[in-house]
Amino acid sequence: MATKNDNFSSLANIRKKRIRLAATVFLLPTFLLIAVYFIYPVIDTFVISTYKWNGISADRTFVGIQNWVTLLHDKLFWSAFGRNVIIMVFSIILQIPLGLFLATFLEQGGKKYNFLKVIWFLPYLMSSVAIAFLFTYALATNGGIFSSLASLFAGKKVTVDLLGRSPHALFTVIGVMAWQYTPFYMVYFLAGYGNIDPAVYEAAILDGATRRQYTRYIAIPLLGPIFKTACTMSLIGSLKYFDLIWNMTQGGPVNSTELMATYMYKLSFQQFNMGYGSCVAAGMFILITVIALLFQKVFVVKEDY
């Protein structure tokens, strides 16, 4: 009896060791790259955040936690964070359901709708520079699409100023972001559908389910883990968003689209305030990581078959 148990435990030990070895080998390249490209910069950022430094000079002054104290009371930072959260919430409730809808449509519609797949995907292929330019014009008060349409319906010249005023600008940008990123989630959910074991589909059809019933009652629930990662990606993406905002509004008008990332960028690279800029970056990093990890814990889906 005892020997058998020993055998078992040593076998289990060997197995454990083997797994550990395999895991290490598989993870090694990632560890190396992350160490070089992430760990050092992140540590550096935290170190710089304790200095008063213009970003270029050889001498910098150690100020301890002074920058962090400022950050805690920095209205600009916290309101930027608030806008990031608004963007996050709206990105998740706009992009993901829309993406799921489009993917489901294509999944249902079959091959004959493949042309739609390509057309729908176009926005994601365009660079932020192009998108910013096209939307600045589409939204322009002078000859833009919305103003022209409104004038057409009203029968007189009406201007719809979507980008130039405080509350509207942020929501306009959220709309443009949804336009840009929804296609990605469409492709993502399509891949999710493609990932479902065909045996599941066959079994469902054999049991007399229609394709639509299969999608609704079997396929979509099976997308659980995919759905969760999609939300996480959208969440992190919205919290560190920079490109389109920078190209479209640079945070204006009157800070109404200023986000954490644009605020950090201005401080670090334009206002010679690298010390505080790094502090903002570090704060941003902490906030995003905490929110993302909390989301992982709170949003539990069945992950295994």
Binding site: F133, T136, Y137, L139, A140, T141, N142, G143, T159, D161, L162, L163, G164, R165, A169, G252, P253, V254
Partner: peptide, 18 residues
């Protein structure tokens, strides 16, 4: 000034355009 003056961008030539 034009309506929506804060949204118009000179980089995109929107002032010349007017």
């Amino acid at each position: 000034f034009p309506d929506g003056v804060n949204s118009l961008s000179p980089d995109d030539g929107q002032d010349k355009q007017l």
